[in-house]
Amino acid sequence: MKLPALKTAVKDLSEIDRREFFKAGGAVATVALSSGVTLMAFGGAASANADAGKRWGLLIDVNKCKSDCNACVTACSDENGWEDTGNPETDAQWIRKVDLTHKQTGREVSLPMMCQHCEQPPCVDVCPTGASFKRADGIVLVDKHACIGCRYCMMACPFKARSFVHEPVENQKSHAPRGNGTVESCTLCVHRVDKGGSPACVEACSETGHGAMMFGDLNDPASEISQALKQYSSIGLRDDLRLNPGVRYSNL
């Protein structure tokens, strides 16, 4: 959609400055503020947009994940502002810990479950309004501006990764809007990723010293995650469905 109003607005001096910086700078991310004030900050990646050349993913080493550790869940909850209200059946659960025992061998494992950011996401296919969508860089999100709360995506998700907001919400985090009557799930901390960061769960996991979670670009053969995937065998959950999840598990 073309907006003539925007064009005039863009002529603002600070915007021109900003563009010059952008042209010049490699590792400089800039943020334009509302009234001609421009802030610049140093960041890792220069890209401010979802980059179609990238595919963000996670690799979870199940052997390193500990059953008694809940750090990733707590970190996600703190980062994104969803919390335990004492109603486990209706509370949001962007990420959850699951403890498993192998039926034949009796091997016990623990792992975090969240949106698997599929390449062929069923939630995106079934969404009637297109609110459930996949970004160019592979992150699957809900555009809550278009979500009508029909919950069909929750019916379609093979991983039970999505939650429906059952109650009015207040005092949300400004980077993680969430509201009554819409569906939500793990965003892979898209607000951090867009600024060159990594998801809060991954950071928390590495702070505990377990280091069971790795984040990176699956399309970049030189990235740490691609190297690890090349070296060790891993699976995607429900690989039989051929959804090619962006979250992979090793030693499961």
Binding site: C127, P128, T129, G130, I148, G149, R151, T182
Partner: peptide, 25 residues
């Protein structure tokens, strides 16, 4: 019963035609 019945108009105007739900509309 929608979570956001106030957005009914949106459901009628913005469609993802890969969705059988959208076709059902």
């Amino acid at each position: 019963d929608l979570g956001r019945p106030d957005r009914l108009l949106l459901a009628m105007t913005k469609n993802n035609f890969k969705s059988i739900f959208a076709w059902n509309i």
